[in-house]
Write a protein that binds this DNA or RNA. Structure first.
Length: 382
RNA sequence: CCCGGGAUAGCCAAGUGGCCUAAGGCAGCUGACUGUAACUCAGCCAUUCGGUGGUUCGAAUCCAUCUCCCGGGACCA
């Protein structure tokens, strides 16, 4: 951990907690760092198809931050969860192949593009973690014995399923499995989007009740996993409800997020410049009079461009006011709000910024025929 | 294994012997309008009704059979 030797506990805590929607257990972080406890992170991902910016950039941004803070990071390739949730046709062989191929390589390229270290990243495949692992299955049962059926039923939203939705029984095993994953992977820090909080809260609630594989600090005291939740990028299409009803914001957030099942709402990590421009051009981008809170283009500017330390350059003709550079998101938002920045100019600027940000990823796919072949093979499955 | 209910475009769904070369809605695509998108408007979008046989002058509609799905029940040494 020599590279973090020069960082103070405060600096490392700041890296761990910055740019997040929510941190549960933030108070516990400095104490863990002070103990010099090796911190281990994990984020579980379903192998659900093409990698979009929510996974490739939003997840990996935090991974990069954590690496810089000296945390050991793990990507959990959740092939069993994918199977349970009927993704990729529920074909286990396909899922496993995509997991250790396209998905792993795509995530590594994404992390590298964001300044993280892909070689220091651990990948764990679900089916391998579970194989001949009594402790895992015992822990799963312990999780189940310490939560209720009602709570599990409410938590199916972590699978992108509605609470009233008719589901098969296997799907009820998914949430407690996800909780068990945290403990078996010995993750002090569990990461996910805001849509994953129900599983993480269960993990914290049962943490003190586990006897087989609880998390412990350096002194052997049982501790709870810290939960860090990143922002869910808005989809580029119009929200299902518009104008947005502020009272129903909680539920709507998930429905508004970028989704692979709505290709127009998402940009993928290897989209070409022209595809990115076309998608941005089609993006829902309400005028300032409608407020800036539910504007996906501004949302992406804030979370993808500015939070990666970039600035936004707006190329405009002299008639439209000439070129502009915004170095802070606040300035961009203010200019948009007062109407001095036209939606189309914002879109054009965002297109070019995204193209530049994603360029190394696209290049990586282009430079490695075997990785590009993995992607091609995936496309054939969709 | 038994009883009951289903199977119509990407999704929801009308139609129960001829007017069905299958209504409508959503999604999608194209164009008009906006210096963006959205909104609105115009146009496009199943020669075919889970498969196969049959009845009939004529079937998505009736019969038989097969496949699959849903609900319930039976079995449970």
């Amino acid at each position: 951990m020599s590279e973090t030797a020069h960082l103070s506990i405060e600096q490392r805590t700041a890296l761990i907690t910055r740019n997040l929607e929510e941190v549960i257990g933030a108070d516990e972080i400095p104490a863990l760092l002070a103990q010099n406890l090796p911190l281990r992170h994990y984020i579980g991902l379903e192998i659900s198809g093409r990698l979009h910016l929510g996974t490739g950039l939003m997840c990996m941004q935090k991974v990069r931050d954590l690496q810089q803070a000296g945390v050991r990071c793990t990507i959990f390739l959740a092939d069993w969860h994918t199977w349970i949730n009927d993704k990729l046709g529920g074909d286990r062989q396909k899922i496993k192949k995509v997991a250790v191929g396209y998905f792993k390589e795509g995530l590594k390229a994404s992390l590298a593009a964001l300044g993280g270290d892909p070689e220091a990243l651990d990948f764990v495949l679900g089916s391998e973690l579970y194989h001949h692992n009594d402790t895992y299955w015992e822990t799963l049962i312990e999780v189940g014995k310490n939560t209720t059926l009602n709570r599990i039923l409410r938590s199916v939203s972590i699978m992108g399923r509605g609470e009233g939705e008719s589901i098969d029984f296997a799907k009820l095993i998914y949430p407690p499995m996800q909780v068990a994953d945290v403990f078996i992977l010995r993750a002090n820090i569990a990461q996910g989007g805001m849509d994953q909080r129900k599983a993480h809260v269960i993990a914290r609630d049962v943490a003190n009740m586990l006897t087989i594989s609880p998390l412990r600090d350096a002194e052997g005291k049982v501790i709870k996993p810290i939960a860090v939740h990143h922002h869910l990028l808005l989809g580029l299409d119009k929200p299902p409800q518009w104008p947005v009803d502020a009272d129903k914001l909680r539920e709507l957030r998930t429905a508004m997020k970028m989704s692979k099942s709505k290709p127009k709402s998402a940009v993928f990590i290897h989209d070409t410049p022209d595809e990115i421009r076309a998608k941005m051009r089609k993006a829902f981008c309400p005028p300032p009079a409608d407020g800036i809170e539910f504007n996906p283009v501004l949302d992406w500017a804030e979370h993808l461009i500015y939070r990666n330390g970039q600035t936004l350059f707006v190329a405009r003709t002299p008639e439209n006011g000439g070129n502009l550079t915004f170095t802070r998101y606040e300035d961009l938002a203010a200019a948009y709000s007062e109407g001095s920045l036209h939606p189309m100019d914002l879109k054009n600027a965002m297109s070019e910024a995204l193209i530049a940000l994603l360029e190394p990823i696209r290049q990586h796919f282009d430079d490695h025929a075997e990785i590009k072949a993995m992607w091609t093979e995936l496309e054939a499955m969709l």
